[in-house]
Simulated scan of single mutants.
Amino acid sequence: MSGGVDSAVAAARAVEAGHEVVGVHLALSRMPGTLRTGSRGCCTVEDSMDAQRAANIIGIPYYVWDFSERFKLDVVDDFIAEYAAGRTPNPCMRCNEKIKFAALLEKAIDLGFDAVCTGHYASIVLDADGNKELHRAAAWAKDQSYVLGVLTADQVQHSMFPLGATPSKAEVRAEAAERGFSVANKPDSYDICFIPDGDTRGWLAERVAPATGDILDREGKKLGEHEGAVAFTVGQRKGLSIGTPAADGKPRFVLEVRPITNTVVVGPKEALAVKEIAGDSYTWAGLAPLNPEVPFECHVQIRAHADPVAAVAQVVRDGERVEFMIRPHEPLTGVAPGQTAVVYMGTRVLGQCTIDRTVSAVPVSAVTDA
């Protein structure tokens, strides 16, 4: 129970469905006195109190479990390391993967519980043979299946999402008000919970020592200098401070961040188009395809609120290297290593991979950078 309206209503619905429910709030902050600022951040003292009030109304036991050390190691430190490596991580994916459906579920199973129930907008569906599958929520506008794409088949077996069939968030808020929950109109959390002021660049600058490096075009020509590659991500336009305009007068965008050489590569917008993505860290959220090494049609989504794109995917073996490769039918734009590609079959979440490499749809010779 995060202290928000969704998890409060999910807990109440689980009780009414006949389950024995215990409310758990995860203390993830290393600073237990942290206060909430509007809709920024989560897991604060106020959130814990909101969760307890909802649990009291529902009439269920309520506990606070301290996972702050695990959260720091698996989410915060990972976030810093990924940016230092020139990648663009998604901490919400890591939190679901390492904390809510790993550390929390492991402890719950050890204590004799059968499942973790959350307020995510997603659905569990049984196939013809009774196997559990993870699917999109009924309301696509609120669908959160993307951030659950990191769940493994075993974790899906022990997950419950009571809000999956709910048509809208407005209906959940109305239900919360009817139940007397004080969080009925509480704003949704957004941004990165451990960077509540939203200044990711400034936060990283305090933790990753900046080092001046070169800004290059795609052919290796120096266009300027930067004060720290960690401040840049693929697709970024602002903050380049190159000065000299491109020959065609069009703006330039970050195409690559190369931490080994401490360089940032920029180019025209069309060079952001990607025709292939792949990663060797992948999982299946349920039964895998019968033969994943045979190309299969699917849809791929690379951001939580991005539109799914038709694609062909397959597992590729090259010697000892095994990776999940995805080729969209139409080029993707602004894809960065470190992002998560979630693959769907219709509404079903089939699996995911962390993107390690991309292949540009536009060769260097086909565009003009300067």
Score class of each variant (00 low, 15 high):
Phe181His: 02
Asn56Leu: 14
Arg87Ser: 04
Ala313Phe: 04
Glu256Asn: 09
Gly239Lys: 11
Asp248Asn: 13
Val315His: 04
Glu227Asp: 13
Pro162Thr: 04
Val22Arg: 10
Phe161Cys: 06
Ile215His: 05
Ile99Ser: 01
Arg36Gly: 05
Val172Gly: 02
Ala128Met: 05
Glu270Ala: 13
Ser123His: 00
Asn131Gly: 13
Ala310Cys: 10
Arg94Glu: 05
Thr233Val: 12
Glu178Gly: 12
Ile60Pro: 15
Ser182His: 14
Ile215Cys: 08
Pro363Trp: 09
Asn291Glu: 09
Phe194Gly: 03
Gly130Ala: 06
Val266Glu: 08
Pro295Val: 06
Pro61Gln: 08
Arg201Cys: 11
Trp65Phe: 09
Pro167Asp: 12
His329Lys: 15
Val364Met: 09
Gly228Tyr: 01
Ala138Gly: 06
Thr261Arg: 10
His329Val: 13
Ser48Arg: 14
His19Cys: 12
Pro245Ala: 11
Ala8Cys: 04
Gly59Asn: 06
Arg70His: 11
Arg348Lys: 14
Ala184Phe: 14
Ala310Lys: 15
Val64Asp: 02
Tyr282Val: 02
Asp129Ile: 06
Thr200Arg: 13
Gly112Val: 03
Glu227Tyr: 10
Ile215Ala: 05
Lys238Ser: 15
Val274Pro: 00
Lys142Phe: 08
Ala310Gln: 12
Met49Ile: 15
Cys43Pro: 09
Phe161Met: 10
Met31Ile: 15
Thr368Ala: 10
Val15Gly: 13
Gly38Ile: 01
Tyr62Met: 08
Leu204Ala: 07
Val312Asp: 13
Thr233Gln: 05
Ile260Pro: 03
Thr166Asn: 07
Val364Leu: 12
Ile326Glu: 02
Arg201Pro: 05
Gly243Pro: 09
His226Leu: 11
Val5Asn: 01
Ala177His: 08
